[in-house]
Design a protein around this nucleic acid. Structure first.
Length: 486
DNA sequence: TGAAATGTTGGGGCG
DNA sequence: ACGCCCCAACATTTC
């Protein structure tokens, strides 16, 4: 067989460098590696330092542990062992390629800045030795740079992005998992347990009940959602107590299922054409949009995209921040959401917006503090989604909600959790309060509080801030920067 | 993927 | 019958 230009005479296995794409189906790198050589070495590298300072939080680590276990099983069932290595990722991959004399390293394209940096370093390092890095789409529908504005610039507004995206791109078919792999044997694998990704104190019981990390769990949940949730998704996703969410976010983040698979699963669903299907695919495109924004603006996690917001007033109040984190703000829907997050590593999307708006606007605390907390506690913590959406709420990002769009947590609660079912579940000290007061216990008559066994300031906190005062303060802070800008 | 303030309209009570 | 006022309901504007 004629040798391809640029391909060395290396005789080792093709390396499959796993990142946030922990699956065997619709995994182009695995497929390509298996096809070209039949002899593969799948590897996952854990970087202790926490790339870019964004070290995975405890909830993410919990998920990663289980997901890696499932991936290892999936690969073993096909004849290959997953190699675990720990260290700086680029140099670890380069060392490994030399160690096994691999001609090619196949991997997925990720939008995170450090992933891009690693790609460049690995590509250069491999090329210097006559090896090759081959990148594939694994975690997105398309490359983060698949579309540009007519002026050739990255999009900053979702709607035109979505329009261009729909017109310019065709979602590819998923690729099948290789049936049979020939795995490479190495004498020095890390043991997953030694990575200590699981909590030292077992706080994860509720996690285990709620989630099933891994490719099989992702598939099961996706099927359940397509059958039962998709048709009503357009409105159901906003209904807090019944939770019409797909709950795919952590599975998508870790790549246990691909957005391509979900895109096509919509077409196979019982109701593939209704408003629910439209709305769901739109959410998948939102995910593409956040990746697009992060790809082109790697500073997004740390700095407001709209420069005038650098001068925006931010209060510093560790006590209030702590109360927000722990769900003790005295505003029921906010507390319910924050406690749900702490308990199961996830929060309903509507409630994410409410809690985030409360932090950034009513409390006037920095959005970065909220971003950092979500990053630490969410099982679906995703740099692009987290950063772009926090900036969206804070009004300082690409296509951001105007800052003056301030959620009133009482009205939001009454609208999307009218009976207070969600609040009662997560804030049990209010469980017996009448529905008409459940979202604003501070304005309940003494009798109603007594009947419910609520003592404000004792069994449940008074609100940290008067809602209308908080709103006025936030708007004043906004005026201060818009005047300067004008 | 807001909320509150302000403006407009129209029905009905009432002198 | 008429004008006036009130106010709910809805629309528009402003933050």
């Amino acid at each position: 067989m004629a040798r391809q230009p640029g391909v060395s005479a290396a005789s080792g296995p093709a390396i499959v460098w796993y990142r946030r794409d922990l699956r065997v189906n619709d995994h182009a790198p695995l497929r390509a590696a298996a096809k070209a050589h039949g002899f593969v070495l799948p590897v996952f590298v854990l970087d202790d330092e926490g790339p870019g300072g964004w070290k995975a939080g405890a909830a993410s680590q919990w998920w990663l542990h289980h997901s890696l276990e499932r991936l290892a099983e999936g690969l073993r069932a096909r004849g290959a062992d997953l190699l675990l290595r720990r260290g700086p990722r680029a140099s670890t991959i380069l060392t490994l390629a030399r160690e096994v004399d691999a001609a090619e390293v196949h991997t997925g394209i990720m939008p995170e800045p450090w992933e891009k940096a690693d790609d460049a370093e690995v590509a250069a390092g491999l090329a210097a030795e006559g090896r090759r890095l081959v990148q594939h789409r694994t975690s997105l529908l398309h490359d983060p740079d698949a579309v540009r504005t007519q002026a050739g610039k990255p999009f900053t507004v979702f709607t035109p992005f979505a329009r261009a995206f729909a017109k310019a791109t065709h979602v590819p078919e998923p690729v099948l998992a290789p049936r049979r792999l020939k795995g490479a044997k190495l004498s020095t694998p890390d043991r997953l347990d030694a990575w200590r990704l699981l909590p030292a104190v077992p706080w994860d019981a509720a996690f285990s009940r709620r989630w099933e990390p891994g490719e099989a769990g992702a598939k099961r949940r996706a099927q359940a959602f397509m059958n039962d949730g998709l048709a009503g998704y357009a409105t159901g996703r906003n209904d807090i107590p019944s939770d019409g969410s797909s709950s795919m976010s952590p599975h998508l983040h870790w790549g246990e299922i691909s957005p391509v698979q979900l895109w096509h699963a919509v077409a196979q669903a019982p109701q593939p054409h209704g408003a629910g299907a439209e709305a769901y695919r739109r959410e998948l495109v939102w995910r593409e949009f956040t990746a697009h924004v992060l790809w082109h603006h790697p500073e997004t996690p740390d700095a407001p995209l709209r420069a005038e917001f650098k001068k925006f007033e931010r209060r510093h109040d560790p006590g209030q921040l702590r109360a927000w984190q722990k769900g003790k703000t005295g505003v029921p829907i906010v507390d319910a959401g924050m406690r749900q997050l702490w308990s199961i590593g996830w929060m309903h999307n509507r409630v994410r917006m409410i809690t985030a708006s409360f932090l950034v606007k009513h409390l006037l605390l920095p959005w970065e503090e909220g971003e950092a907390w979500f990053w630490d506690t969410l099982v679906d913590a995703d740099l692009a989604n987290n950063a772009v959406n926090w900036q969206w709420v804070a009004g300082c990002g690409a296509d951001a909600a105007p800052f003056f769009r301030i959620f009133n947590p009482v009205l939001q609660g009454q609208k999307f959790d009218p009976e207070g079912t969600y609040v009662r579940h997560w804030v049990p000290e209010l469980a017996k309060l009448e529905s008409r007061y459940i979202h604003e216990p501070w304005s309940a008559p003494v009798k109603a509080l007594e009947a419910a066994g609520v003592k404000l300031g004792e069994t449940y906190p008074r609100p940290q801030v008067d809602l209308s005062e908080g709103r006025a303060r936030a708007l004043a802070a906004l005026r201060a920067i818009t005047r300067k800008a004008a």
